[in-house]
Design a protein around this nucleic acid. Structure first.
Lengths: 135, 135
DNA sequence: CATACTGTAATAAAATCTATTACAAATGTA
DNA sequence: TACATTTGTAATAGATTTTATTACAGTATG
């Protein structure tokens, strides 16, 4: 299901993109979003897993982009923060005795997959650099 | 933010579309989804507000489509159940002293509006009738 | 007039999201 | 070396959102 991860991650990357040479601390990043620094560190962990950023521990440590912001697209961020877009399921266990209940999740999945591809195509046209320029 | 409303509403409409002549009760509809009937009645209230269905109270009452399933698109359902698509905000009150925090929600809004339009365009091509045929 | 529905409000329970606390490990600097 | 600052991560608590439940007035059917 959808959460604030995409927005938080994009916010982090926008800041890193604004100061590409510096290691920014999670406290600083959290301050711009007005959220808790631990949340930021969790998203950074995810970003590191996808080789988007690199961190330095210890004093004067922090995080910076691992590649140019032109080489990161919003699609990368999108697929990193969601498995797929979903408009939600009515529940996980519809009634299998009903022909509609039996197939609804499968058919919703198929629909969401299509939507997901469309969104991905659209977001792949926007780089982090493009997005950052709007600030 | 996104919830199960879209899926519940689509599930309801799919069932109504399968039995276009009958008034189906909220208990029956809820049984297919395995959710509470009051939730179904709430979504039906929304559907009525948008003139998609009509209900009959009292014994043997229930709900049926107010128009042919070919005249309802998934876009109608989409815009009925969400104001707009959103991948979430990091929070509602980013730091206005930060140039990024100050503009992030505005820029996210703009991005989400674009995505929303794309999804709407895609969903407008699929009628409830099309969707129902897949069961 | 009994039965079976809708419509709606109020409340509670469950699930999810976010914040907080805590602390080990890393690392620059005096 | 000792200290300060920061990452990384786990555990817990608090807040918010979603879903379920209960309750009951109103309406139609037979």
């Amino acid at each position: 299901m959808i959460s604030g991860k995409f927005a938080i991650t994009l916010h982090i990357l926008t800041l890193l993109s604004k100061f590409p040479e510096e290691y920014l601390s999670s406290e600083f990043l959290a301050g711009s979003m007005n959220i808790n620094a631990v949340l930021v560190r969790k998203e950074i962990a995810n970003l590191k897993k996808h080789n988007m950023v690199e961190s330095r521990e210890g004093k004067y440590g922090g995080t910076r982009l691992a590649k140019p912001s032109k080489d990161i697209t919003l699609k990368d961020i999108f697929s990193m923060t969601f498995d797929s877009v979903s408009l939600g399921y009515s529940k996980n266990d519809p009634n299998p005795a009903c022909p509609v209940g039996k197939k609804i999740n499968q058919n919703l999945d198929s629909l969401y997959t299509d939507i997901n591809q469309t969104i991905s195509a659209q977001l792949s046209l926007i780089s982090l650099d493009d997005f950052t320029k709007e600030f």
